[in-house]
Amino acid sequence: MSLQNTWHHRKVADTAAKACFICYKPSNSVLITPDNKDFFYICPAHLKDRNFCSAVVDTAGAQAKGKEEALAREIEKVKREYEEKQQRKKEKRKEKKDGEEKKDADKDKEKDKDAKSDEKERDDKIESLKKQEKRQGNTPTDDSDSPRVFSLHKNFYQMRIDRLRNIEVAKRNRQRLQDPSLFPSVPSRGL
């Protein structure tokens, strides 16, 4: 039986909290192997204990965060450009109002339409950036900065392997006990 020493940190609902593997306090944090062969509940404080496990550096996750930050900067840039554009339009309107009398109601409606179309254009840019990010598959799953992948230290890893091995042995023993050919038959002749 081979069990990878790679464990992913997951959260479960508070109602599904179970006893921690170390201290037996209720916990909603779970460490699970990538192939779902083994899992156990653990307190988040134990994940920070350097004698229990160590975080595995996730280069793909770091790259995704970098792309996410770049996307956020780009969205902010689009918002700033929109605000600057609106300021310029307001200044032009004030200059025109100072120089001229009020214009027809139709022209005011056109200005409102222009403002609405600019706002819609900004929203469309932001939505297209978000859709592009989703297509690339770089959406964050968790907002916390805590590591998501861990490697247990050798003693705890060996405990997990022994536990799985004992479960497998107990299962084989139960199957053997149910097999009638395991026990010797009663002698048919009498003495």
Rank of each mutant, 00 (worst) to 15 (best):
V78L: 08
E69L: 14
R174A: 15
A62F: 09
T15W: 03
L47V: 04
K125H: 07
E100N: 12
K18R: 13
P140L: 15
D118A: 12
D108R: 06
K65A: 15
W7H: 01
M159L: 14
G190K: 09
N138T: 02
M159V: 02
Q4M: 11
A60Y: 06
F150T: 02
L182P: 02
V149R: 05
S144H: 10
A13D: 14
K65L: 14
C23K: 05
N173T: 10
D142T: 08
R93T: 08
I161V: 14
E133P: 01
A64R: 05
D143M: 07
S54L: 12
D38C: 07
D143L: 15
G137P: 01
M159N: 04
I32N: 03
Q63D: 11
I32H: 00
P26F: 02
I42F: 00
E119Q: 07
D142A: 14
D112T: 08
M1E: 09
K85V: 02
K90S: 13
H153F: 04
P180C: 01
E69W: 04
R93G: 10
M159K: 07
K48Y: 05
A13M: 08
H46F: 05
R73E: 11
S2Q: 13
N155L: 08
D14Y: 03
V186K: 07
E168A: 13
Q136G: 04
R165G: 09
